[in-house]
Simulated assay, not measured.
Amino acid sequence: MRRAASSSWIYRFDEMEEHMVQTGSRTARGVVAPAGVFVAVAFVAAGVLGAAQAGTPIPAEVIQLTQFGPALAVAVVALLWPRTAREALTGAVGRGGGPALPGAGGVGVALQVTALLIVGLSAGAYGLLTGDARFTAPGTLGSPFALIVVAQLIGACAEEIGWRCLLQPLLRRRTGPLAASVVVGLTWGAWHVPVFGRPPLYAAAFLLATVSMSVVMGLALERVRGHRLLLTGGFHTLVNLGLLLFMDEEAGALAPIALFGVACLLTALLWVWRAPARIHVR
């Protein structure tokens, strides 16, 4: 009985969604309400999960439960607006619709190389500035490194299914790829609420990093039709692992996060420079 009632409820949402599409309302275009609900749920769920982690034995260096907030938000949007969610998530896992674009495979490789470049620029500049090339040997971490790698990939994908696989495509219906990427990057950065308990320059550098990385991933996704979750999750994982091993930006010092932000900005400018001119328009 409950299942039948639930199915009827979801069906009514689907009918309402189709009606709004036909009438051309803003909500029907699958942007305003779904995006707003996604962001709200992602923030609330992350806060609840972050508080819950304190009562578990899971080390934060392995995985942070807050990373599953965006995934839960995707589930809520998919429940309320199934058609909109299906369309936005097309190509997130597996191959998406439409013919493959020229050079799409190379873009995926370039995205992962960019993650390594960000880490290399950050760590190299930090070493030159301080005279101490910081490196944490994987064997000295509190958990097996293989476990950390797998958990970091899972956590990164739990974030990217929301930020780049749902919210980015939703915003792309209203604006161009560059503007959509900047908005997603700002929202993604603001979602890391504890960062704003740091000094203003620290928070600004962190936002610079999230916006820049969002631009890189957003422009890369313009050239691929499928496997978007694996590509962005891989990029996110490589950056997180690189910071874990080579940087100490979470200690609160300004220099590491500032250098990280500048490294992200430089790579984003490179992607913008190499992108087609259409990214500058809607």
Rank of each mutant, 00 (worst) to 15 (best):
N240C: 11
L265K: 11
L241C: 05
L129V: 12
H227N: 13
V113G: 14
V107Y: 00
A137E: 02
E222V: 08
Q22R: 15
V113A: 15
R172K: 13
V62N: 07
G94H: 13
T140C: 00
I10R: 14
P194W: 05
A204N: 09
A253L: 03
A209N: 05
P177W: 08
G50N: 13
H227C: 07
G185P: 14
P256H: 04
P169T: 07
L153C: 08
T267C: 15
L219V: 09
A205P: 06
W81M: 06
T66H: 07
C264Q: 04
G185Y: 10
A85Y: 11
S181M: 12
P34G: 11
H19F: 13
A158Q: 12
A255L: 13
G55W: 14
L167Y: 11
L166V: 07
I154S: 09
A255C: 00
V211E: 03
T56A: 04
F206H: 11
H236R: 03
V93S: 10
A115W: 05
V93T: 13
G197N: 03
R282Q: 14
R134N: 05
E18C: 08
P276Y: 11
R278L: 01
L259R: 06
S212P: 12
V182T: 06
L129H: 12
A52H: 00
L230A: 15
R274L: 11
V113W: 15
G142Q: 14
R86I: 06
L266N: 01
G242Y: 09
W81A: 10
G105K: 00
L117F: 03
P276T: 05
A73R: 05
A255V: 05
G127M: 10
T56N: 07
P194F: 09
S181C: 12
F135L: 14
A179I: 15
R26N: 10
A158I: 12
V149R: 03
L201F: 00
V150T: 06
W188E: 10
S143R: 11
W188H: 11
I257M: 00
Q152L: 11
L72S: 08
V41L: 07
L221H: 06
G36N: 05
P169R: 05
H280N: 15
Q67F: 11
Q152T: 15
G24A: 11
I10W: 01
C264W: 04
G197K: 01
W273H: 07
A255M: 05
L244F: 04
V32H: 01
V224P: 06
L231H: 02
L170T: 11
G47L: 12
A258W: 02
P169L: 08
F260W: 13
I10E: 06
